[in-house]
Structure formats: C-alpha cells, structure tokens
Design a protein around this nucleic acid. Sequence first.
DNA 1: GTTGATTTGTTACAATATAACATCTCAATT
DNA 2: AATTGAGATGTTATATTGTAACAAATCAAC
Lengths: 166, 166
Amino acid sequence: MSDSTELFAPHNHSLCINTALTTASQLCAERGVQLTAIRQQVLELIWADHHAVKAYDLLERIKPLQSAAKPATIYRALDFLREQGFIHRVESLNAFVGCNDLKSAHEQLLLICKRCENVEERHADSVMQALAQELALAGFTAHHQAIEIHGICATCTQSNNTPSLN
Amino acid sequence: MSDSTELFAPHNHSLCINTALTTASQLCAERGVQLTAIRQQVLELIWADHHAVKAYDLLERIKPLQSAAKPATIYRALDFLREQGFIHRVESLNAFVGCNDLKSAHEQLLLICKRCENVEERHADSVMQALAQELALAGFTAHHQAIEIHGICATCTQSNNTPSLN
DNA sequence: GTTGATTTGTTACAATATAACATCTCAATT
DNA sequence: AATTGAGATGTTATATTGTAACAAATCAAC
Ligand SMILES: [Zn+2]
Ligand SMILES: [Zn+2]
Ligand SMILES: [Zn+2]
Ligand SMILES: [Zn+2]
C-alpha cells in the first residue's frame, strides 16, 4: 500500500500518531525524563498531519487544552522534544515536524512539498555518504546538518488537481 | 597560497570584494537592472568578511551612509541581491552571505564554522548528484535547496587557539 | 513532611520580517 | 520643455518569531 515513493498517499495516519506517541513515551521512561501533559500535547499537535507546524500555530491549538499557554510554554516543549529527538526543526520554514525514526540517531533529508505542504523525512544514505566525503575533503567537522529541499512531491505530481490531505 | 581546504586561511580579501562588486555590476548592466547605491552598499557590507550577516546588522552598518534607512530598505536590497543570485540566505541563521560564484547558476553546500563564523560555499558535485538521484527515486521535483552544515572548519581545527579573522 | 530539582506561570521584551501607501527619480515620449 | 510611467525609495505601522528573567507550583526522593 505504501512504498517509499508515496509515503503520503492515503495511509492509516492514526498509526503514525500512535507509534510516535508510544515510542516517545517509552524513550522518556528509559531516559528518566518526563513526557508531561504539555509536552505530549504539543507532540500530538505536531503529529496531527505531516505538515511542518509553526510555534504560534501550536500555541493557538493548545490553548483549549492549556488555557495558560504562552509562547514560552510552546518553545520549552519544542526544546524538550528536539533534545529528545522526537521532532525536527525545519530551518527554512521556522517550523517543526515529527521525526519518523525515533529509534536511531540520524541526519535527515527533508522533502518539503509546496503544494500539499507535507514534509517527508528520508535518511538518504547515499547523499549522507557523499556529504561525509565532501566534509572530510574540506577538513570540516560537522555538528549539525540541515538539508531541506523545497519542491513538488510525487503524490502531487501524479494527481495535480487535488492536494493529498494526510 | 589557498587550496580548497583552506579557503579562509589568510588571503587577499580585497580581491574577493572587488570581484564580487565588479561582477555584480557587469551582470546588472547585462540584465538591464540597476545596481543602485543602496544595493551596492549592502552588497559591500555583506562582503566585508566571509561571515553571514543579519539584516538588522546591515541596517545599523548602512545608517552612516543612508541615514533614512529602515528595515524595508535592507530587505528590499536583500531581495534584489538574492533575485540576481549575488547573495545566499543562510536559512538556519536568518542571515546572508555573498555568493562566490556569480557566473553560474548553482545549488550550494554551506559550511558554517561555529568558531570563526566563516561560511564556505562549496558546489560539492558528488553530493548534488547523489541528491539528484535520491530526489528522482522519491519522485520529488526540487525548486530550491538549502544544505547547511554547522561545525568546525579546517582552519579552526588546525589552529584551535586563535580564530581566523577573514 | 522536607528538600531539591524540574517544570510551569507570567511579564516583558528582543529580533526578524512584511504590508501598505506616499514620494521621488529618471529616462522615454510627446 | 512638459508629461508620463516604471522602478526605486521613504515612511509608518504592524506581523511574526523567539528569549530573558524571576516567581510559583509540582513532584520524586529522602
Ligand atoms: Zn528524524
Ligand atoms: Zn505534495
Ligand atoms: Zn575573502
Ligand atoms: Zn553561490
């Protein structure tokens, strides 16, 4: 039903959400850190779909649940979720997206569709290997990478009338 | 004097500046667009060194020359310089850096040193080829890429006492 | 129950960026 | 020379994104 070229074709998105939340919960327990209500709610809101979400949008969406929420509320939760590797920041959008591989540390390639706004995370080993060689050649020691590609995804290219919704 | 592994080792930086300004001027003439005083001054300020410069820093620095300068003054100049391909935006820093290859359209890999803050632009063909393959595999049509690596550059690794200044 | 670390509340503000409309400049046309 | 129109700049206001600082609350361990 879903091969690597159509990650965002119709799929059982509750599975995405459940996996993300369950795994995050397990990892927090293992690590002795707290997945508090606020943090979990923010993570859930981020996983509402596969879009990148902006901090102030999260703030609006969490207010029904946390009436005292202020910008710091959101940014603290985002900081925590990033430190734990549960989400990625999309630098070129000032926005945040759920990580789809919580089990392994990784650098990621983000494919950002301008049409449906879905963000697909790929590990793209061949790219990362070429990059590692290039960095070695340059004598550069990498600490953090942001590789973000904006364009049109496969699903939108195929059906260029109705944007996919998940 | 300067091979590809030490672009920012001591070098004749006036040459960098002169090349950037002269070439930009030529290209503007060819393209029938105006490299106005403000635009040229912003480009010069960006090329003061190899750091990424923030818009509001540019605003402060241009005020002695353009006392009426406001945020829009800078952002308009930056928009123009980006459209013409004279500068790149560093998404992960909200900052701007001069392009070091005005003659050819290109995607670029930016190596951002946390220590000396220099930004080295590399074209990294092998990375771009691997990336093109990965995008083809994903059925993704790229319109714009941001590939930004944060870490420690070769020069700073070698002499880890005094940050290089250019 | 006390303690100490973590989390959250709260206020204020900093930093980054854009919208909207008025004015200016300057070259082409009349 | 006056008119005009496009591009550039001036100007004001505001939107968006993100942090600092300190107080209060929570919670787990002792
Ligand atoms: Zn991830
Ligand atoms: Zn799409
Ligand atoms: Zn230089
Ligand atoms: Zn360039």
